[in-house]
């Protein structure tokens, strides 16, 4: 499991950030010459690429990989402010496009001993346990603070064969195999649309069931999920629209 893939470190050849297992303590991607993407770009296996192409690759991987999973982090799981609320909903829109997707949250970063529940949560200090337990081969991280994304992504690359996607609200993450940057709610919705388009072009039917929890536990009922899907943001934000939050294309009005 922990054998080092020496061929990845060939001199004079650009480092390719592929799924692991790359071995205990893999190098930081930045130390192997991988740079953060510029605005409008993302990274595909460490290579700067047009953002639309990265989104399509994310879609393909999430639609075809084994046990695709969304790992939402504290920035979208907790009700900090109206923006978090809106982004959380956009994350659920992404989940809505991926058949059989699992949603396993990372509510905070505290270490947990003597044990964590790999079916219930992913912990940044032991992400490999959740990935191994649920046999996850492709995943999206969204709503994590950079420093913990850093730790988690490297640990996953070190000890698992999981393909990682970082949907980042800042400048992208070079330690993820696929990453896009500046991901506000608008961009999250765009990603959901790209996934839908790719799914349709591949002839994959829309999901018929709500996302699962780890271990394939059903965590929301189909009825509850239907409500989240059909009623949009207006069912979730009580009362007045959030102040200063412009309406986006395709966004439900806040009634």
């Amino acid at each position: 499991m922990y054998q080092k893939r020496e061929h990845l470190y060939k001199r004079d050849e650009p480092y390719v950030l592929k799924p692991g297992p790359e071995g205990y303590v893999p190098p930081a991607a930045a130390s192997m010459g991988i740079e953060l993407p510029d605005p409008g770009e993302g990274l595909i296996y460490g290579r700067k690429t047009n953002e639309d192409a990265v989104m399509e690759e994310i879609a393909k991987q999430m639609l075809t990989g084994k046990n695709p999973t969304l790992f939402p982090g504290p920035l979208v799981l907790w009700n900090w402010n109206d923006h978090a609320k809106i982004k959380a909903h956009a994350v659920l829109e992404i989940a809505n496009e991926i058949p059989g997707v699992m949603i396993i949250p990372m509510p905070d970063y505290r270490p947990k001993y003597p044990k964590i529940e790999p079916e219930e949560e992913i912990n940044p200090n032991h992400p490999n346990l959740t990935i191994w337990h649920n046999k996850i081969e492709v995943c999206i991280f969204v709503g994590l603070h950079c420093h913990y994304a850093n730790l988690t992504l490297k640990m996953i690359r070190a000890g698992t064969n999981c393909l990682t996607v970082a949907v980042c609200a800042e400048q992208g993450h070079e330690d993820a195999m696929l990453t896009i940057r500046d991901s506000d709610d608008n961009k999250l919705r765009r990603l959901a649309q790209v996934i839908r388009k790719v799914r349709e072009s591949m002839g994959i039917p829309a999901p018929t069931r709500p996302p699962y929890g780890g271990g394939k536990r059903e965590i929301v009922t189909p009825e509850e999920w239907a409500k989240i899907r059909s009623q949009g943001l207006s069912s979730l934000t009580a009362g007045t629209p959030p102040k200063g939050m412009p309406m986006r294309e395709g966004q439900m009005p806040h009634l």
């Binding site: 939402p72 979208v76 799981l77 907790w78 009700n79 900090w80 402010n81 978090a84 609320k85 959380a88 909903h89 659920l92 949603i103 949250p105 509510p107 529940e117 219930e120 949560e121 996302p211 929890g213 965590i219 929301v220 509850e224 989240i228 979730l236 934000t237």
Partner: peptide
């Protein structure tokens, strides 16, 4: 105290401990 509650739609996905 909304910041110690989960965002709408995610309550059910939270681990039991957090709920």
């Amino acid at each position: 105290l909304d910041y110690v509650k989960s965002t709408p739609g995610f309550e059910k996905f939270m681990p039991k401990d957090y709920r």
